[in-house]
Simulated scan of single mutants.
Amino acid sequence: MSKHYDIIIIGSGPAGQKAAVQAAKANKKVALVEADKVLGGACVHRGTIPSKTLRENALRIAGLRHHAELFSFSLRPDMEMAALIDNMHSVISAHDEYINNQIQRNKIERILGRASFVDKNTIDISMPGGATDQLTADYFVIATGSVPRQVDNIEVDHEYVYDSDSILSMMYLPQTLTVLGGGVIASEYASIFASLGVRVTMIDRYPRPLGFLDKALTDRFVHAFESEGARFIPNANVTRVYWDGVSQVITELEDGTIYRSEKLLSAAGRVSNIKGLNIENVGLALNDRGIIPVDRHCRTAIENIYAAGDVIGPPHWLLPLWSRAVVPVVRPWVWIWVK
């Protein structure tokens, strides 16, 4: 017999975590389903928390390097990356412990496994080791986040060509890095590695990065970025990316230009993570922007199923502003990199 809950949350990232806690505080019987053995989702383990930790430490190292001659010391590049990764894991571990304690304190049942909709009140759970279970609920919240968008002509191997999740697994600083894309993720990582002394080339098909910002801000960003010794290549269409089998990643552009680098980051944005969720079984589908459409209360087309977080795209109140390109600086890191 399947176990019944008032609310089942699928995904333990910021949206899922907060939905579960609020439901528990409203005296509901809550289950939190997570496919990873750790809580927090991509935000904690592969996205926001790691990248912001890396950014802050990169700024500290850049400051130390700037004053190295004054204090007569030097920083070994291999030690720099090792220290950055070690500190990043410490921050992630602390955040994971905090979330675990919060879930336990609020008596939320944690379920390790992959969820798949059977109908609007039922999900199957595939657990580690091959075991399965079935759960029912009055309400569901889909908070499964997003995954890096894959580009047809770019094969990500996570060793030479990375995406925005696997870039954090790089264990040493390359001398050169190519970043494809001009959005928030591309601009942030390009800036971080440039600040660490890596020669970065950022290539984008648009005339300027961060196109949702005012042109004066993006001009300042590009100026600060190139002041670090980096390059921004606008209006460029990438036709092919491949590792040469020896030591370099080759990026070929439509106009015949070739760029070479030790590593490459493909940052083509992110798409809703619904793999295996079988939302079509309840009559849901992604819209033309690749996200689950919801109303202003985050309710989907199915009355008892809600969705929140990256799986529904950026905050809805920002979309009209972005389209007019009059958004003020909405990401704190922009102030740091636009000097």
Rank of each mutant, 00 (worst) to 15 (best):
N100K: 12
N100L: 07
N100S: 13
N101C: 03
N101L: 09
Q102R: 15
I103K: 08
I103L: 03
I103G: 09
I103M: 11
I103E: 13
Q104T: 14
Q104R: 13
R105T: 13
R105A: 14
N106C: 01
K107H: 13
K107V: 11
K107G: 01
K107T: 08
I108W: 11
E109L: 06
E109A: 04
R110F: 11
R110L: 15
I111A: 11
L112N: 14
G113K: 00
G113D: 00
G113L: 02
G113I: 05
R114E: 14
R114K: 11
R114F: 08
A115C: 11
A115G: 06
A115V: 06
F117A: 12
F117C: 10
F117L: 07
V118M: 03
V118R: 01
D119L: 04
K120D: 14
K120I: 02
N121H: 12
N121T: 05
T122N: 03
T122D: 05
I123D: 09
I123Y: 00
I123A: 03
I123N: 04
I123P: 03
D124N: 14
I125C: 08
I125W: 06
S126N: 07
S126F: 04
S126G: 12
S126M: 02
M127S: 13
M127V: 01
P128R: 04
P128G: 12
G129M: 04
G129A: 07
G129S: 08
G130E: 08
G130W: 04
G130K: 04
G130F: 10
A131I: 07
T132C: 07
T132A: 11
T132N: 05
T132G: 12
D133S: 13
D133T: 05
T136F: 01
A137T: 02
A137P: 05
A137N: 02
D138E: 15
D138S: 12
D138A: 13
D138F: 05
Y139P: 03
F140L: 04
V141E: 00
V141T: 08
I142E: 02
I142K: 06
I142M: 00
I142Y: 00
A143Y: 08
A143W: 06
T144Q: 10
G145V: 07
G145L: 08
S146G: 06
V147T: 11
P148C: 10
P148W: 05
P148Y: 08
R149V: 09
R149P: 05
R149D: 09
Q150F: 04
V151T: 13
D152E: 15
D152V: 12
D152M: 07
N153M: 07
N153P: 13
N153R: 09
N153S: 13
N153L: 10
N153A: 04
I154Q: 10
I154D: 01
I154A: 03
I154L: 03
E155H: 14
E155W: 09
V156M: 06
H158K: 15
H158W: 08
H158Q: 15
H158C: 09
E159F: 10
Y160L: 15
Y160C: 15
Y160V: 12
V161A: 14
V161R: 01
V161F: 11
V161N: 10
V161T: 13
V161M: 14
V161K: 01
